[in-house]
Amino acid sequence: MQIFVKTATGKTITLEVEPSDTIENVKAKIQDKEGIPPDQQRLAFAGKQLEDGRTLSDYNIQKESTLHLALR
């Protein structure tokens, strides 16, 4: 499925993911596309910060959802 990640600079990244993917996997995909190390990424959805060990389906993130990326 496709999801979107909006960066602090307003850029939107499109990612191909599975509901079973962990947040860690998603951060690795962002690193592949943007070169941002996962340990510098903070992802949020619906106002909640997402934890590495959880999956997209844990957070009820569905196709075409938009996550927000902040850098630490």
Results as ranks from 00 to 15, higher is better:
Met1Lys: 02
Met1Tyr: 10
Gln2Asn: 15
Gln2Ile: 13
Phe4Ser: 05
Phe4Leu: 06
Val5Gln: 00
Val5Arg: 00
Val5Pro: 00
Val5Lys: 00
Val5Thr: 02
Lys6Tyr: 09
Lys6Trp: 07
Thr7Cys: 04
Ala8Asn: 11
Thr9Arg: 10
Thr9Gly: 15
Gly10Pro: 06
Gly10Glu: 09
Lys11Tyr: 12
Thr12Trp: 06
Leu15Trp: 01
Leu15Ile: 12
Leu15Val: 07
Glu16Asn: 13
Glu16Gln: 08
Val17Asn: 01
Val17Glu: 01
Val17Asp: 00
Glu18Met: 15
Glu18Gly: 09
Pro19Ala: 13
Pro19Tyr: 08
Pro19Arg: 06
Pro19Asn: 07
Ser20Val: 10
Ser20Glu: 11
Asp21Tyr: 14
Asp21Phe: 09
Asp21Lys: 02
Asp21Met: 13
Asp21Thr: 12
Asp21Ile: 06
Thr22Gly: 04
Thr22Asp: 05
Thr22Trp: 07
Ile23Gln: 02
Asn25Met: 15
Val26His: 00
Val26Met: 04
Lys27Phe: 02
Lys27Gly: 01
Lys27Leu: 03
Lys27Asp: 00
Ala28Ile: 14
Ala28Glu: 12
Ala28Asp: 15
Lys29Val: 05
Lys29Arg: 08
Lys29Asp: 04
Ile30Asn: 01
Ile30His: 00
Ile30Asp: 00
Ile30Gly: 00
Ile30Trp: 01
Gln31Lys: 11
Gln31Cys: 04
Asp32Gln: 10
Asp32Arg: 08
Asp32Ile: 10
Asp32His: 13
Asp32Gly: 13
Lys33Val: 13
Lys33Phe: 10
Lys33Gln: 12
Lys33Tyr: 12
Lys33Asn: 06
Glu34Met: 12
Glu34Ile: 14
Glu34Ser: 12
Glu34Cys: 04
Gly35Cys: 04
Ile36Lys: 02
Ile36Leu: 06
Ile36Glu: 02
Pro37Gln: 08
Pro37Met: 09
Pro38Leu: 15
Pro38Gln: 15
Pro38Ala: 15
Asp39Lys: 07
Asp39Met: 12
Gln40Trp: 11
Gln41His: 03
Gln41Arg: 02
Arg42Trp: 07
Arg42Leu: 14
Arg42Lys: 13
Leu43Gln: 00
Leu43Pro: 01
Leu43Cys: 01
Ala44Phe: 15
Ala44Glu: 15
Ala44Trp: 14
Phe45Leu: 06
Phe45Val: 04
Phe45Asn: 03
Gly47His: 08
Gly47Ala: 05
Gly47Gln: 06
Lys48Glu: 12
Lys48Phe: 11
Gln49Glu: 15
Gln49Lys: 09
Gln49Leu: 10
Leu50Met: 06
Glu51Val: 13
Glu51Cys: 05
Asp52Trp: 03
Asp52Met: 06
Gly53Glu: 14
Gly53Leu: 10
Arg54Gln: 08
Arg54His: 14
Arg54Thr: 10
Arg54Pro: 05
Thr55Ser: 13
Thr55Trp: 04
Thr55Cys: 04
Leu56Pro: 01
Leu56Trp: 01
Ser57Gln: 13
Asp58Thr: 05
Asp58Gly: 04
Tyr59His: 03
Tyr59Ala: 03
Tyr59Val: 02
Ile61Glu: 00
Gln62Met: 11
Gln62Ile: 11
Gln62His: 13
Lys63Phe: 08
Lys63Trp: 09
Glu64Cys: 05
Ser65Cys: 04
Ser65Asp: 14
Leu71Asn: 11
Leu71Arg: 11
Arg72Asn: 09
Arg72Gln: 11
Arg72Gly: 15
Arg72Ser: 14
